[in-house]
Simulated assay, not measured.
Amino acid sequence: MIKRLFDFTLSAFGLLILSPVMAGVAWKISQKMGSPVLFKQVRPGRDGKPFKMVKFRTMKDAIDAHGNPLPDSERLTSFGQFLRSSSLDELPELWNVLKGDMSLVGPRPLLMEYLPLYSAEQYRRHDVRPGVTGWAQINGRNTLSWEDKFDLDVWYVENRSLWLDIKILFLTVKKVLVRDGISADGEATMSRFEGSGFGEKND
């Protein structure tokens, strides 16, 4: 209950204070990429329950001759890269936190299609609400292997506390300022999880 009150209070305050910034980002996206301004996708929440996560759009809707989306590296614009490196694309997730779908701190919500690929231990990341930021994000973010990322997620589940959340939020601000760990080596973002740590991302 304390964590939920903490999340609700800070997300409401954040939405209020950051509304001019969010309006400016939305206008810039509409100018550079058109509509929609927001990216919405169903992600697994606590206990794997689906919810619709909302972020600012960072990629063009570019497809190949067969109608398939082009790789992230070809769809991600320079402005989109700036939004990701500054984490401004994550700001609309404060609405998910306010609604109770997410927490400020927790394992990042990944893709629904990953659910059957997790081991029993890895699935424990869904014992808590997913977060806007998390223990893995301040310890390497997208430069981590999938296995290391999940180990850090489970560590957070086992050791979570309000004070740990405050520490993670503080370190997240520091990471954002230096723009550290934005992408994996050789990738525009992060490789797709295929149960063995290889493969195209959508985080």
Rank of each mutant, 00 (worst) to 15 (best):
K55N: 10
D47G: 02
T189F: 08
Y114A: 09
F13P: 02
L98Y: 11
G14L: 02
Q122S: 07
F82H: 01
D101Y: 03
S11M: 09
L169V: 03
P44V: 06
L18V: 03
P107F: 06
D185W: 09
G140F: 11
S183F: 00
N202C: 06
S19C: 11
T9N: 05
W135D: 00
F39S: 07
K32H: 09
K3R: 14
I63R: 15
H66G: 12
N96C: 13
I17K: 03
Q122R: 02
S145R: 14
S73D: 13
P36K: 06
G197N: 01
L169Q: 00
G45E: 02
T77N: 06
K40C: 07
D151G: 07
Y156W: 10
L110N: 15
L111G: 04
A188Y: 04
W135F: 15
S86V: 06
A136R: 09
L91R: 00
P71G: 08
M190Q: 08
L88E: 06
G14E: 04
W146E: 07
K40D: 02
N139Y: 05
A184Q: 10
W95V: 11
D151H: 14
A120P: 00
E187S: 10
A184F: 13
P20C: 09
K175P: 00
V21G: 05
L104G: 03
L94H: 04
I2Q: 11
M112I: 13
R46K: 12
T77D: 05
L117V: 08
G131I: 05
G24T: 11
M190W: 04
M33S: 13
L152D: 00
P20W: 08
N159W: 11
N96R: 08
L171W: 13
Q31C: 13
P44M: 07
G131W: 01
R84N: 01
L88N: 02
D151L: 12
G199F: 10
S35G: 09
I2P: 02
L162P: 09
S19N: 10
D127G: 14
M59L: 11
F170Y: 15
R124F: 04
F193I: 02
